[in-house]
Simulated scan of single mutants.
Amino acid sequence: MTAFSLNPQQIAWRTELRALAAERLRPLAEKGEPGRVNRPLVAALGELGLLDRLFGAGDGPAGGGALGLCLLRESLAHGCTEAETALALQGLGAHPVAEYGSAAQRDRWLTPAREGRAVAAFALSEPGAGSDAAALALRASPDGASSWRLTGEKCWISNAPEADFYTVFARTTQDAGARGVTAFLVPADRAGLSGTPLDMLSPHPIGALAFDGVRVTADDLLGEPDRGFRVAMTTLNRFRPSVGAFAVGMADAALDAALAHTAGRDAFGGKLSDLQAVSHQIAEMATRTEAARLMVYAAAAAYDRGEPDVARRAAMAKLLATETAQFVVDAAVQLHGACALRRGHLLEHLYREVRAPRIYEGASEVQRGIIAKDLYAGGGAGAATSE
């Protein structure tokens, strides 16, 4: 297999996942409340074995690597964005536990997270630290030989304040930039931890957290003290290519809707698709979507092969795919006209969903910075090409 093609088994699995999302997961999503954690949906993802694939389990047609994750996220996003988001948020919150947690932490929290019985969250961003994650201000002040007190705030945290546990990044050494950050596993019921939901454009749960002297000990560490930034970046690099897959899934859903609408809508004595301006727009949407898909697959395959330029490939994939999805969804809304603006329409839903991925897990501007820095460091424009 190359980075630019899928084998028949992978294609069949993608088709199966799309049907599963539409038939099994979409009804659960529709029963949920926007802006709240949908626990029945998370439980279904666990029961179906889909959460296991976030952590390398499973021997299905796509395996458990980055490419398999991309196929999973793309396929779920096509049929049910809420299911895709619930799956991805579990991955972000629990991956540090899988990668850096102790045996006791994995047994207590990772097992129920994989089964959909416990909701995880990744608590990195703060009111004054978004794209510049090294500027974290949440303080972890020493409280004895091997314990700390967390004081400060987190903001824009997905699944907050309803998660059962949080991967929290706090500053243990002042004025040390990225080198002074430590990762902790903090249960939601820890004394001094509180949270409030935020009313956001996108319909998935996002909130703020307040830490009022929350006590954590060496048993709560994820990795080593002052090495938490590595935990954060390892997690983000793992999931960044698949953010592009989420975007491709949304773009594909919008494209399918636009194809069906323009082929069936009567206009000016024929079908809307008979108009050259319309058919050319459809062609542009399809071409951009396919280009984004191929770049996402290439980045994921490079990650699975352990190639050295994964950070740049992942940045390129996220940048192109999320910007493309914004274009495709917007174009589909335009082709549908007023009906796409009605609350509850698929495209109205996608229009609200598609904006956030251009910001979270590194805004488009951050991705351009990563790409340019690598190029100027000697990577060369041709170094990112595949086989």
Results as ranks from 00 to 15, higher is better:
S75V: 01
E353I: 07
E284Q: 14
S75L: 01
A123R: 02
L28V: 03
S364D: 08
P225S: 09
P34C: 02
A298S: 15
Q90H: 01
A191C: 07
S102F: 11
L89Y: 02
A145C: 01
C70M: 07
G130I: 02
K154P: 05
R53W: 05
A88W: 01
S242Q: 08
D164Q: 03
L92W: 00
H280D: 15
I282S: 01
E284K: 13
P197Y: 00
G128C: 13
P205W: 01
R73G: 03
G369M: 14
I157K: 02
W148T: 06
A277M: 11
P142S: 14
A19D: 08
L72N: 01
A88E: 05
A62I: 04
E361N: 08
V119Q: 01
H336C: 13
L259S: 04
A311S: 15
A178S: 13
Q281I: 07
G264H: 10
C80Y: 04
L20D: 07
A325N: 10
P197L: 06
L110Y: 07
S5C: 11
T2Q: 14
S75D: 05
L72K: 02
P197Q: 05
T196W: 14
A44K: 09
G344Y: 04
I371T: 03
Q10V: 01
T172Y: 07
L150C: 04
S242T: 15
D132M: 10
L67S: 02
V231M: 12
L236W: 04
D252G: 14
A218T: 13
